[in-house]
Write a protein that binds this DNA or RNA. Structure first.
Lengths: 169, 169
DNA sequence: CACATGGATTGGATTTTCCAAGTCATGTAG
DNA sequence: CTACATGACTTGGAAAATCCAATCCATGTG
């Protein structure tokens, strides 16, 4: 009865989507790099200066984000300068807004800063403040306590996949 | 012009809610421990066996989750057994469903598994499949491209807080 | 009293992160 | 043409986190 392997060493992809996401995003820096990209950072030095991340790690993190299709590396050239690279979010990267939004909302509610939420999410067009929530097919929010996670494959999945299931809380 | 401090060593709390959340959740194991809790794990051995995590780390992660108010440690006693502890999600922990849901949805869409999504989110009462989305005050979903992050304090915040802002993508 | 059990704790090897210094190709200045 | 500046990395070694196996510890039962 061998124990389950740890997520980052599993030879084949983990079955659980949460694990696959965390294999890329679940460390101290990667989501902060993405956040900086949302805030407008594109160049190596933008990320380095904003985050204070070690440059070897930044090279590695940007590389893994590019490999994963979350960012893309483009060549740019300012007049009188040699060609350089900068980094831009792809659609996959832009979709991480939801993950960052969920983390931000959770932090605001459950790890409150000294002076109330320092930032909020809002609609560009209506300027209404926005929350992150579960929504049904019609785009209407549902109560979080009414949400459950279930398997999608009629029970075919290996025991490992069961780990995505259930919500007794 | 000193560099910004790195998040986990910053003496006072980071201004950004995303950073505060990641300071607790942004490692390889913590969110997987929370996922197991959603899947019904309560005892030390449940988490250890499901995740294959080293026991010293599990002790530490459960402890930091309890300290942060995400889980609570309860005493239980089976008949003819001595008293033991188990771990249950608090409301703060249950609210992490949104973060896990966002990660799962992103993984399903952008790091697709071999055979389609292995799990989905649905309503307990209507059984409709659910998405994670941004919603306005009336509980209606808004297009993710229409979302921007803004400061909430009239520009009073330190430069560091600017890092939560902006959404050029 | 010997032993089993769940829940940790400990010691040491391995891996990751941190930090400062160095490299490398291309620019401009003299 | 040589000297130097610049941005974007590499590299080397120290510090910290992680992994793993073995051990501990209190309280059950036989």
């Amino acid at each position: 009865m061998a124990r389950a392997k740890r997520p980052d060493v599993t030879p084949d992809q983990p079955v659980c989507s949460i694990e696959r996401s965390l294999a890329l995003l679940g460390d101290r820096w990667t989501l902060l790099v993405v956040r900086e990209a949302f805030a407008g950072a594109t160049r190596f030095s933008d990320f380095r200066d904003a985050l204070g991340i070690a440059t070897d790690l930044l090279t590695q993190r940007l590389g893994s984000l590019v490999d994963a299709g979350v960012m893309e590396r483009r060549t740019y050239q300012e007049p009188g300068r040699r060609a350089r690279f900068d980094y831009h979010l792809t659609q996959a990267g832009r979709d991480l807004r939801l993950v960052l939004g969920a983390l931000q909302q959770w932090g605001d509610r459950h790890r409150p800063p000294v002076g109330g939420p320092s930032a909020l999410r809002r609609s560009r067009t209506t300027l209404q403040p926005l929350d992150v929530a579960f929504v049904d097919g019609g785009g209407a929010a549902v109560d979080i306590a009414d949400v459950e996670f279930v398997l999608n494959d009629g029970g075919r999945a290996a025991t490992r996949a069961q780990k995505c299931e259930g919500l007794p809380g």
